Measured scan of single mutants.
Amino acid sequence: NKFNKEMRNAYWEIALLPNLNNQQKRAFIRSLYDDPSQSANLLAEAKKLNDAQA
């Protein structure tokens, strides 16, 4: 399933972002599970926040 693969990839990328705190990571990951079709958008948002907090 395409969404499962995208979701799994996004999950690990988000989990490993160095500048997000655990609460932020959990919120993004919860959103991934709520709507796997938004994986790419959620990952992009997480990366933006990660960069902003660098």
Rank of each mutant, 00 (worst) to 15 (best):
L17R: 01
K5W: 02
I14F: 02
A27N: 12
F28S: 04
N1T: 03
R30Q: 10
S31V: 13
L49E: 05
N22A: 13
A15T: 14
R8K: 12
Y33H: 06
P18T: 06
D51V: 08
A10P: 01
E13Q: 08
E45M: 08
Y11E: 11
E13T: 09
A40S: 10
N4P: 15
A52G: 11
R30C: 11
Y11I: 14
M7A: 07
D34T: 05
Q23H: 12
D51L: 09
A10D: 02
Y33F: 14
A46N: 00
F28N: 01
K2T: 02
K25S: 01
L42P: 01
K5I: 02
L16G: 12
N9E: 14
M7W: 14
N1K: 09
N4F: 08
A46T: 02
A27V: 09
P36C: 03
K25T: 02
K47P: 00
A54L: 09
F3T: 15
S31P: 03
A27Y: 12
S31E: 08
E45V: 12
D34Y: 05
K2M: 13
F3A: 15
Q38P: 02
A54C: 10
K5E: 15
Q38E: 05
Q53V: 07
K48T: 09
L49Y: 08
E6T: 03
K5S: 01
F28G: 01
N19V: 04
L32I: 07
N4Y: 11
N4Q: 13
K2Q: 14
A46F: 02
R26F: 09
L20C: 01
N1G: 09
Q38L: 14
L49W: 08
N50F: 01
R8H: 10
Q23K: 08
M7P: 00
A54H: 12
K47D: 02
L43E: 03
N50V: 01
D34K: 08
N50Q: 06
A44M: 10
Y11V: 14
N50I: 01
K5Y: 02
N19Y: 11
A40L: 12
K48I: 14
S39M: 15
S31F: 13
D35H: 04
Q38S: 15
N21R: 09
Y11C: 13
N4C: 15
K48M: 07
N21S: 04
L20E: 00
I14S: 00
L42K: 05
K47Q: 04
F3Q: 15
D34G: 10
N19K: 07
Y11M: 15
A40V: 11
D51W: 11
Q53N: 05
L20M: 04
L32Q: 01
A10H: 03
K25L: 04
M7G: 01
D51E: 09
R30S: 09
M7H: 02
L16D: 05
E13W: 10
F28W: 02
R8S: 06
Q24G: 01
R30Y: 12
Q53W: 08
A15C: 11
L16Y: 13
R26A: 11
Y33E: 04
D51T: 08
P36M: 04
Q23E: 14
A10G: 02
Y33R: 03
L42Y: 06
M7Y: 04
N19L: 10
D35R: 10
P18K: 14
N4L: 08
L16S: 12
K47Y: 07
Q53D: 07
R26N: 13
N21E: 10
M7E: 02
P36L: 05
L42S: 12
A44G: 11
L17A: 13
Y11F: 14
E13L: 14
E13F: 15
N21Y: 04
K48Q: 11
A54R: 05
E45N: 13
Q24D: 07
K2V: 03
A15H: 15
N41G: 08
I29R: 03
Q53F: 08
L20P: 00
L49V: 07
K47H: 07
N1H: 03
